[in-house]
Amino acid sequence: MKKYLILADGGSPHTLKWAKELKKYFNIYMISFNGISDEIKEMIDNNKLYDLRVNISVSGENINVLKKILSVKKIIEKIDPCYINAHYITSYGSVAIAAAMLSNYKGKVILSA
């Protein structure tokens, strides 16, 4: 089964919906900057979940998110997924693109608004 890496808020109901559907077709991995819900923890093996714990501000100025690019790069290299899907374009999308480029990732990067 192909590996699918989701970069998203692990506590979001939207992320849960995506993960539930994608799990039918892919081997799911997840990176979250701010926690992972119990529902997702029950659905995805703990060794496939990465909670990087970043203090995110809805008002912007999230330099701490950018500081996680190298951590995400290492995870991408370790997993080597066929797909990387970042929800949302601003924080998760920026980190996903930068980390994928730094790791010479050859798969597909999908950004969701």
Rank of each mutant, 00 (worst) to 15 (best):
E21C: 10
I63S: 11
Y50S: 02
S37R: 11
E42C: 08
I31M: 08
H87G: 08
E61T: 04
V72N: 02
L5D: 02
G93V: 05
L70A: 10
P81E: 03
K68Q: 13
I75D: 04
N62W: 02
E39K: 13
V109T: 06
A100Q: 00
I6W: 02
S94Q: 05
S94R: 03
I6A: 07
K106R: 13
L5W: 04
A19T: 12
G11W: 03
K24I: 12
M1N: 14
V72Q: 00
K68P: 02
M101F: 05
S57F: 05
Y25T: 11
I84C: 04
I97P: 00
A99L: 03
S59A: 07
K106H: 09
A100E: 02
L7N: 06
S112M: 10
I56M: 02
K3M: 15
Y88N: 12
V54Y: 00
E61S: 09
I6V: 14
N46Y: 06
I76D: 00
S103H: 06
I110C: 08
I97R: 02
E77H: 09
D38F: 10
K74I: 08
L70V: 14
N64A: 08
D51S: 01
V95T: 05
S71P: 01
I28A: 05
E77K: 13
G107M: 05
F33S: 03
V72F: 01
I6N: 05
I44H: 00
Y83I: 13
G60H: 05
N27G: 08
L7I: 14
L49D: 00
G35K: 10
E42P: 03
L66Y: 13
N64V: 03
T15R: 01
K48Y: 00
F33K: 03
S37Q: 12
C82D: 13
K17M: 14
L22E: 12
K2S: 15
F26I: 08
K73C: 05
V65F: 01
L5G: 04
K74V: 08
I56T: 06
E61R: 13
A96I: 06
K20D: 11
R53D: 09
M101I: 12
D51W: 00
I110V: 14
M43G: 02
A96C: 07
L102E: 11
I69D: 05
E61K: 14
S32M: 04
L7F: 07
L16S: 10
S59M: 08
K17F: 15
E39L: 10
L16C: 11
V95H: 04
I89M: 12
I97C: 00
L66H: 09
G11H: 11
N64R: 06
S94L: 09
H87P: 04
V72T: 04
E61D: 11
I31N: 05
K108M: 09
Y29A: 06
A19L: 13
G35S: 15
S94D: 03
S112F: 12
I6D: 00
R53L: 02
K2T: 12
N85T: 11
Y4W: 11
S37L: 12
A86C: 09
I56E: 09
K67T: 05
Y105C: 04
L66P: 07
G107I: 07
N55V: 01
Y92S: 08
N64E: 14
